[in-house]
Computed example of a mutant assay.
Amino acid sequence: MLRHNDPRWETALSPWTLADDIFDQCLTFFRSHYTIVTLDDVKASVAGARPLPPRCLLITFDDGFADNLDYALPLLRKHGVFATVFVSSDVIGRQERLWTEDLLWAFMAGRVRPCELAQLHALLLGRGEHDPDDPKLIWDIVRRGPELHDEQVQAAFSGLDIDLNRITWPRQMLTRDDLAHLVASGVSIGAHGKTHTALTSSSDVATELSHPRAVLNDIVMAHGQSSVDALSVPHGAYTPGIVDRALAAGYELVFTGDAVLSRLKNGFLVSPLVGRLDVDGRRIAPTGDFLPEVLAASLFIAPQRQSGVALRFVRPARRSRFANMAARCNVP
């Protein structure tokens, strides 16, 4: 979530960035049509302790960007509602966002050519020659790259003379103090992996699951949150085996990128596996003007996973002016 005059706006990624004024209008819409619930409410429902109300909605953010504190929190307070922020533990306190996200922006903006991307893929992931026009190359790097060692990554970029023009101010990622402030303000914190590597591609799934719980519990438990026991899988990538491992590791809820409505039976969530619906600024405000009927359609006609009463989980996007380029690059 960003404001148009924020220096981070120019290199923000689509379709995961939403302008703050559009989010303000979304919250007005949500409050008019739904009961906005907390993560604790959802956990109580899946545990069978307390039913959720009809037409309920949970707001979530992924990654741990500082703009969640800068722009989202004031608007949540304005409307008297809460949200959940899922954080990758390795990015806490960083000035820069992940290099894979800077690379994705540079590629979509035409600053990194397809031939350079193919060479970078070979250097980093070592799978021989690739067709530079293969649209899967960029996503393979984005999903597998975060766990690579910094020295290997820097050597590859230097060897290819690629400059990502990374933004370090304003600071990109939440700090420990920021997270404590969010919790004290009623925002729940969840885990989003350790490195932000897709769990289906990770070389160490156990650490990707355990590290964020340990790091985040150390922060949030001193400020009123009982524990970190909800996981958002990075890149929305998971398998049934990964879900089982997450539950065995102590997580009570596993949020995915599946664009489906979760289902309730008599007010109780029937599965700990939760889909989410993106609030995509390209669709609900294509010219900068909020279109509530488009947002309504995306929520009301979303597919349903199981029978029962629908529970909608929405994840505001971080909006950028590179939406059309991103669409051509097959942003999922």
Rank of each mutant, 00 (worst) to 15 (best):
V205D: 02
V205F: 04
V205W: 00
A206D: 14
A206G: 07
A206I: 12
A206S: 14
A206F: 10
T207Q: 11
E208H: 09
E208C: 14
L209N: 10
L209K: 09
S210N: 12
S210K: 11
S210C: 08
H211G: 06
H211Y: 14
P212F: 15
R213M: 11
R213Y: 05
R213C: 07
A214Y: 12
A214C: 08
V215G: 02
V215P: 00
V215A: 11
V215E: 13
V215F: 03
L216G: 03
L216E: 07
L216V: 09
L216I: 05
N217E: 12
N217F: 05
N217D: 15
N217P: 01
D218H: 15
D218S: 15
D218Y: 05
D218C: 08
I219Y: 02
I219H: 01
I219G: 01
V220Y: 01
V220G: 03
V220N: 03
V220Q: 02
V220E: 00
V220F: 06
V220A: 04
V220R: 06
M221W: 08
M221L: 07
A222G: 08
A222W: 06
A222M: 11
A222S: 14
A222Q: 12
H223I: 03
G224I: 06
G224C: 11
G224P: 10
G224E: 13
Q225R: 07
Q225S: 03
S226H: 15
S226T: 14
S226Q: 14
S226C: 10
S226R: 13
S227D: 13
S227K: 09
S227F: 02
V228A: 03
V228F: 00
D229Q: 10
D229M: 05
D229V: 09
A230P: 07
A230S: 14
L231K: 00
L231M: 07
L231V: 04
L231R: 00
S232M: 13
S232E: 08
V233K: 04
V233E: 05
V233A: 12
V233F: 01
V233D: 05
V233M: 06
P234G: 05
H235K: 04
G236L: 05
G236D: 06
G236Y: 02
G236M: 07
A237V: 00
A237K: 12
A237H: 15
A237G: 12
Y238Q: 02
Y238K: 02
T239K: 11
T239G: 10
P240R: 10
P240I: 01
P240Y: 01
P240Q: 10
G241I: 07
G241F: 04
G241H: 11
G241Y: 05
G241S: 14
G241D: 10
I242H: 03
I242M: 01
I242F: 00
I242K: 03
I242S: 00
V243T: 15
V243S: 05
V243Y: 08
V243K: 09
D244P: 05
D244Y: 11
D244M: 09
R245G: 03
R245S: 14
R245D: 15
A246F: 05
A246M: 12
A246G: 13
A246T: 08
L247T: 04
L247M: 10
L247F: 09
A248E: 12
A248I: 08
A249W: 02
A249C: 10
G250V: 09
Y251W: 10
Y251K: 00
Y251P: 05
E252Y: 00
E252G: 14
E252L: 02
E252F: 00
V254Q: 01
V254D: 01
V254S: 01
V254C: 03
